[in-house]
């Protein structure tokens, strides 16, 4: 349980720091301007560095993972989606993984029944939870555009309108808020409930979940419970995206908790498992086409080899071979 509580306490502490600092030490400039800029810089630089680092690693073998018929003779039906043989096919496969989590869709779970019988049944819970979590986060992120644009793009306004379809509360209730909380709860509970998962889970698995949970709770708290001054927030955010160093106005402390946790997430991002967001595009098991029978995959670090053909060999030893009575191809 230590590995659950330590990250939880860390997130709580992280949340407390800006709260105390802003409420009692009036350090809103540090938490509203300096740390966000630093975090954004670290995030962008770290992200790019990680991508560059991965990109410059050679790929010695075509190690594409497949689970379908690869391209073969004409009368053998190829599974284009599972075993693509073109770059385009591979791109479609990567995108279907990114957008729909296809590999999780295939999950199965072994169950031991009385009998005794071991059965494998499909288990879609992680797929559903993951999909709900990631898509909600994407929509929530896009919705935040209203703080960064004077007039957000039309599609974002439409998204916001659809998200607040249900007339529930007066600052309109967003469905994705509820969905992301439910999904987070499921993802945490999943790791704690099942003994097998509990054993393989690490602090670094729980920490980002709790961190994102903290961000979501702080954000929802500002919207529905402990109100903050939204005009000052917008002014601060518009200032930040235009590289201004103007001090933030009077905003509730909860906002700084939210912003600080987001900054921490941004800093943590490039150096953690969260980099799967970038890595999924660069993963050689995914982004390579399964065409090893058509094209020779050269290991980039191999020097071009020096080979000697039989013809060359015979040229050198022809006379001696003839003398010894060995058959030669050319006279």
């Amino acid at each position: 349980m230590k590995k659950v509580f330590i990250p939880l306490i860390m997130v709580a502490l992280l949340a407390l720091i800006p709260y105390v600092a802003v409420t009692y030490a009036n350090m809103s400039y540090l938490f509203g301007v300096i740390i966000p800029y630093a975090a954004a810089f670290i995030f962008v630089a770290g992200f790019l560095w990680r991508l560059f680092d991965w990109l410059r690693r050679p790929v010695p073998f075509p190690i594409v993972t497949t689970c379908g018929q690869e391209k073969s003779l004409d009368w053998v039906k190829q599974n284009h989606l599972e075993s693509p043989s073109t770059r385009f096919g591979a791109a479609v496969r990567v995108l279907s993984e990114v957008l729909f989590f296809r590999s999780l869709f295939r999950n199965t779970k072994a169950e031991l029944h009385t009998g005794p019988e071991l059965v494998y049944a499909s288990s879609k819970w992680l797929w559903m939870g993951g999909l709900a979590f990631h898509w909600s986060l994407l929509i929530i992120g896009l919705r935040h555009a209203r703080f960064f644009f004077l007039e957000p793009p039309a599609f974002i306004a439409a998204l916001e309108h659809a998200d607040s379809f249900l007339e529930l509360t007066l600052p309109a209730f967003f469905m994705t808020d509820a969905i992301v909380l439910a999904a987070l709860t499921f993802l945490v509970a999943r790791r704690i409930r099942d003994a097998k998962l509990r054993i393989i889970s690490l602090q670094t698995d729980f920490f980002p979940l709790f961190l994102i949970g903290g961000i979501v709770l702080a954000g929802m708290g500002m919207r529905y419970l402990e109100k903050v001054d939204i005009l000052s927030i917008k002014a601060l955010m518009m200032g930040l995206v235009s590289f201004s160093f103007e001090a933030p106005g009077e905003i509730g402390a909860l906002f700084f908790v939210h912003l600080f946790l987001v900054s921490m997430l941004a800093i943590y991002f490039p150096f953690s498992k969260l980099m799967h967001a970038g890595a999924i595009f660069l993963s050689p098991t995914r982004n390579l086409a399964n065409n090893s029978r058509e094209k020779l995959h050269r290991n980039p670090w191999n020097k071009p080899g020096k080979f000697r053909t039989y013809a060359e060999y015979e040229d050198e030893f022809r006379e001696k071979m003839k003398k010894a009575g060995l058959p030669v191809e050319k006279d």
């Binding site: 644009f149 004077l150 005009l231 917008k234 002014a235 518009m238 995206v241 235009s242 590289f243 106005g249």
Partner: peptide, 14 residues
Amino acid sequence: FHAGTEGEAPASQA
């Protein structure tokens, strides 16, 4: 973003 914010009155003015 920057272009979008130019000529913008600060919140306090609004």
